[in-house]
Structure formats: structure tokens, C-alpha cells
Amino acid sequence: MFTALEVFTTVLVGLMVGVEFSVAFVMNPIFKALPEDAGLLGRAHGGRMLGAVMPVWYITSLVLAGVRAVAGWHRPGTGLVVTGAALLLVSVIMSVLLLVPINNRGKTWTPENRPADWQEQSNRWDRFHYVRVAVIIAAFTCLVTALT
């Protein structure tokens, strides 16, 4: 059962990293390259769609990493799991304080109602997101390393 918890936690975090990496380095560059308002509309739709899923994914990943740390407290690699869980907590705090407020505004934007500084706000979200991606990659690395 413990091994299943380790594997499930690691896979869940790994998939989350993949999605967020794709947003940062694939989807957002595609949106920026689209003509006229297509990029704005794509980002708004992505903000609505992922904004509904990612909070559950982040919290579930954090909880599972915490459960794994407690359940395996005296096993090898637990220090790495605790570090990974702490990094996931940092990513949740970053999300709530820095990214979610921008996303909540951006997901409502249309060509008719976007603010004059919408691109600046989008670029700020991107910069925060790059940092968050680095944090969750580090968390994933800790979890994977704990398995070996």
C-alpha cells in the first residue's frame, strides 16, 4: 500500500509539472503568436479551464506528499519528501497570492472589455508562472529521488 502511495503521488505531481511546463513553454508562446485577439481569447479560455482544475490538483498533490511523509517518517528518503511537500506548499502560496488574482481577471477578458494593460498583466503572470514551474519541478525531483 505504501508503494502505491509513493507511485501515485509521484505520478500525480509529474503530470501536474508536465501540464504547467506545457502552459509556460508551449501554449502561452503559441497564444502570443496568434493574430489579433485570438491569443487573448485563448488565454482567457485556458484560464477558465485550468483555473477550475489546477487548484484541486495542487492541493491533492500537497496532501498526498504530506501523507507520504507522515506514513514513511522512518523510511529512507523522507527528508526529500518533506522538502518536496514544502516546495509544493510554496507553489500553492505563490498561486494564491500572485497568480490566481491575475488569472481571475484574465479569464473574463474579451476584446471588448480587456484593460489597456492586459499584456503587461499577462506577462507578469507568465513571469510568476516560470518561477512556479521551477518550484514544482524541484518538488517533483525531490519526490522522484526519494523513490530511489
Rank of each mutant, 00 (worst) to 15 (best):
V26E: 13
T78C: 04
V70S: 11
R127Q: 08
S91N: 00
G14K: 02
T83Q: 02
V133G: 09
D117P: 12
T145F: 12
L34G: 01
L98S: 08
M16F: 14
L12H: 02
G18M: 03
I102C: 12
T110D: 00
G47P: 06
I93S: 13
V56H: 00
A52T: 04
V144S: 08
F140T: 13
V63A: 03
G42T: 09
V90E: 04
F31Q: 00
L147D: 13
T148W: 15
Y58S: 07
L50E: 01
G84P: 03
F140I: 07
K107S: 11
I93P: 13
N28P: 00
T141I: 09
W57K: 06
V63L: 13
G72L: 03
T108E: 11
V7C: 01
E20P: 00
M1Q: 12
H129C: 07
P111E: 00
G42N: 10
P111K: 03
G47R: 09
G66Q: 06
N113E: 10
E36H: 11
K107E: 12
T108K: 12
S122I: 01
Q121K: 13
T78N: 05
V82H: 06
E36C: 05
S22I: 02
V70G: 04
A85D: 01
F2H: 09
A69T: 10
A146G: 05
V26N: 10
S91H: 02
V70P: 12
F128M: 10
T148H: 15
G77D: 02
E6G: 14
R68Q: 08
W125M: 03
R114Y: 10
I30R: 07
V23N: 09
G72W: 02
A52W: 08
L64G: 08
L88H: 07
N28W: 04
V26Q: 12
E6P: 03
F21P: 05
N123W: 11
F8S: 14
V11L: 08
V63S: 06
G106H: 10
L15T: 08
K32M: 12
V26P: 07
F140W: 15
D117F: 08
T148F: 15
W125Y: 12
E120P: 01
M16E: 09
R124E: 12
P76V: 02
I102R: 14
P35C: 04
V135H: 06
V7I: 15
G84E: 09
A85Y: 03
V53E: 06
N103Q: 15
F2G: 05
G84Y: 11
L12E: 01
N123T: 10
L41Y: 08
L89W: 06
A134K: 11
S61K: 06
A139Q: 07
M54T: 08
G72V: 00
I30Q: 11
M16R: 07
R75H: 14
C142F: 07
H45M: 08
A24Q: 07
I102V: 12
G18H: 05
V56D: 00
E20I: 00
Y130V: 09
F25D: 04
F128L: 06
H129S: 08
A24H: 02
R75C: 06
I137T: 03
G46I: 11
I59W: 14
V96K: 09
L12W: 06
V90L: 15
G51V: 11
G14C: 04
L34P: 00
V82W: 14
E36A: 09
G46N: 14
